[in-house]
Simulated assay, not measured.
Amino acid sequence: MQDVDVWRTHTPFSDPGVHVGAIAAFPAEIGRLIEIVQGVLVHSSWLDEYGLDAARFTAAVRTTLPVARRLDDILARDPQPLDVPRPPERRSIGTCRDYALMLCAFLRAKGVPARVRCGFAAYFRQGWEDHWVTEYRDARTESWRLADAQIDSMLRHRNRIVFDPADMPRKAFLTAGEAWLSFRRAEADPGAFGHGETTGSWFMKVNVLRDHHVLNGRETSDWDRWREAAPTRRSVRDDDLEMLDDLAAHPDQKLVALAPDWLD
């Protein structure tokens, strides 16, 4: 593993830019930072649950923005200080990755080593759903902990979530590499892992590559374009298995510049 101090440094996507001063005034307690994130974002897949008309929005809201641009958008919608919670209709619309990235940015701004992780959550449906969370370093225990800034009161009530979103149990979320290795050890059914109706070892491969990119400072990559892959291209070749096993076991190794095979 790399030196944890690496994770105090912003990437181009996590850098809050001109908003760093506003973040400096935030409390350092992670639970409070999660509340601030929840007060400015609303998830594109749950608009109905927040009383918003999903038909008014387009697929463009799935685009992950750099934190500086996301904060610009939030303030353009409502110029109140960022730590003032907005009603859902005046929040910026994003996805789980935006929640994870913003919390990561806030923690880094506070000097806490933090990073975004790609993997699968067990608290959205039966099985394991594609999801992104924040992993941060606990100075007291010198260990990595998981936090999901998306878990607000609505989601907690709807999905009967009882754990602390600032300190999630590892059994609630598997990083992409952990999921892949459990499949390779024949301990898990790959059909239980995926995004909606897209499940199986091919999607697990996509997330292994996306998590590998994140741990090389790239919160987005061409692997996010997985929806473009034709059904006939959604397979894992036998000669990729050894490479994927190695990336799953050591996701923070030097970036393997592997382009998505459906783009060739």
Rank of each mutant, 00 (worst) to 15 (best):
P251M: 04
V116R: 04
A122K: 04
T141W: 06
P79Q: 02
R117D: 05
G39A: 11
A139E: 13
V6A: 12
R90E: 09
N159L: 15
V206M: 01
T63K: 14
H10M: 03
R237A: 14
E197Q: 15
R210T: 08
R77Q: 08
M1Y: 06
E89D: 10
A114G: 10
G31L: 06
D222T: 09
M243G: 06
R62V: 10
A105N: 00
A122P: 04
L174T: 09
D148Y: 09
D83C: 02
K205R: 15
W46Q: 14
Q126I: 02
L33T: 00
T9K: 13
S92H: 14
R70H: 14
W128M: 06
I161V: 14
A259C: 07
V40I: 15
D98Q: 01
L52V: 02
A114V: 05
R90L: 13
D72N: 15
F183D: 13
A28Q: 12
T95W: 10
T11D: 10
M168D: 11
D15W: 07
T58Q: 08
S182C: 07
F13R: 09
I161L: 14
D48N: 14
P169A: 01
D222E: 12
W202C: 03
A114N: 02
S235Q: 12
L52E: 10
H131R: 05
V20N: 08
V18Y: 08
A121S: 09
E178R: 07
L65C: 01
L41C: 04
L263W: 02
R91K: 15
E129K: 01
E219N: 02
E187F: 02
L155R: 14
F193D: 10
A166K: 00
R8L: 08
Q2W: 05
L101Q: 04
Q126L: 04
R218P: 02
N216R: 07
E135R: 02
H43S: 08
G177F: 11
Y123M: 07
Q38V: 06
A179M: 05
D261W: 15
S221W: 06
L174M: 14
G39M: 06
A114Y: 06
R91Q: 14
V116F: 01
L155M: 15
A121L: 00
L33P: 01
L209H: 15
P190F: 10
D138G: 07
P190N: 04
Q253E: 03
R184S: 12
L247P: 01
A166Y: 01
E187Y: 02
R115G: 11
R140E: 13
R108P: 00
R145T: 00
S44M: 15
V162Q: 11
L101I: 05
A22V: 12
F193A: 13
A179W: 01
V4C: 05
R234W: 06
R97T: 08
R32F: 07
H195P: 00
A100Q: 05
T9R: 14
W226H: 13
V84R: 13
E178A: 12
T198W: 11
L47P: 03
D83H: 14
I151N: 12
R56A: 15
M243W: 02
E49A: 13
V256T: 10
L244N: 04
V116D: 03
G111N: 03
G111R: 09
D245R: 05
P231V: 07
R170I: 05
D53K: 08
S182F: 00
I151M: 10
H131C: 06
C118L: 07
